[in-house]
């Protein structure tokens, strides 16, 4: 098959743009029947037709620019928000990304049918070229839709991630001058960062001299987590507070040794109770049972 020359391509672009403008009403009417428009614009049929018309207009602008594959084409800009609303509405209805893509692909038939009818008198070569051009244009529309959906998804992920991070770091005041942070679950970089920041803020707010980082609830300690612990300890020290890491389970102790992680000068204790006893000692306090009260077993009797 021979490569179409530039003139043929230009005229294909022009005829597609012309047809879209001329038959805008008909294309929009047919689209209004399709699930993509029908299920999103449910108030009146006119609303769906109107929405369809604005998409046709956008396609016509992009077509006349002669670059049907340009995802960034400014011609799409006026309808990006609308496309976003449509695709968001479809995903809320439980339609998958793939299905939405298929629904957008289904818009092509109406355009191609009208194009063929309009260009009946033209030579076969031009007709063929115009159909190819229109196909590419609609494929781009499909990509624009997918891109919009992915962007929206990304935004939701970022937002939820932030909420998750902020909600998951309690700083508990154990005593005047002593705070504890129980770490739970998996510590990735972003969470460690939030933990570090809230901990250091708490040192200032609570006038803490000793901070206990309890990792009883941490599932695994790898090199990265260890690094974050060291950084937190070093930052707290620079601020004038001492850090104790507690709750190192035997399995985690083994991992730390096996990985060859050097926790260096970090003070560690196996239980939170031991860490608290040490912290109290550091601020010059000691715990003893009152002479007139019956002795209670264990360190839990604080």
């Amino acid at each position: 098959m021979s490569e179409p020359d530039a003139t043929t391509q230009r005229s294909a672009a022009q005829s597609v743009a012309d047809v879209l403008l001329r038959r805008r009403e008909q294309v929009a009417q047919r689209w209004a029947e399709l699930p993509l428009f029908r299920t999103v614009f449910t108030v009146t049929r006119d609303e769906a037709v109107e929405a369809g018309q604005s998409v046709v207009d956008a396609l016509a602008v992009v077509a006349s620019s002669g670059r049907p594959g340009d995802l960034e084409a400014s011609g799409f800009d006026p309808v990006r928000v609308q496309i976003g609303r449509m695709s968001a509405s479809r995903s809320r209805a439980g339609v998958s990304v793939g299905q939405v893509a298929a629904e957008v692909a289904a818009l092509k038939d109406a355009v191609v049918d009208l194009l063929k009818a309009e260009l009946e008198q033209e030579p076969a070569e031009i007709r063929h070229e115009a159909v190819l051009f229109a196909s590419e244009l609609l494929a781009t529309l499909r990509l624009v839709t997918l891109e919009t959906m992915l962007d929206d998804g990304q935004e939701i992920i970022v937002r939820q991630r932030q909420q998750l991070l902020e909600g998951a770091t309690p700083v508990i005041k154990l005593w005047e001058g002593i705070v504890a942070v129980p770490l739970i679950g998996t510590l990735d970089s972003a969470r460690s960062q939030v933990v570090m920041e809230s901990l250091l803020e708490a040192i200032v707010a609570q006038q803490a001299k000793v901070v206990i980082l309890d990792i009883t609830g941490v599932s695994t300690v790898d090199t990265l987590v260890a690094q974050h612990l060291m950084k937190t300890v070093a930052s707290a020290r620079l601020m004038g507070a001492e850090c104790i890491v507690s709750g190192i389970r035997p399995a985690i102790a083994q991992t730390i040794v096996q990985l060859g992680i050097d926790l260096g000068s970090v003070i560690t204790r196996s239980s939170l109770a031991d860490a608290l006893a040490m912290a109290l000692h550091r601020i010059g306090l000691r715990v003893h049972s009152a002479p007139d009260s019956p002795p209670v077993a264990g360190p839990a009797a604080l």
């Binding site: 803020e201 040192i203 200032v204 950084k231 930052s235 620079l238 601020m239 004038g240």
Partner: peptide, 24 residues
Amino acid sequence: MRPAVAITLVELGLTLPELRTART
């Protein structure tokens, strides 16, 4: 030393282990 300053110094690689520090 403020929290943000401490975090930044440590990230920079300066933990200043020889330096004695206090909160107030």
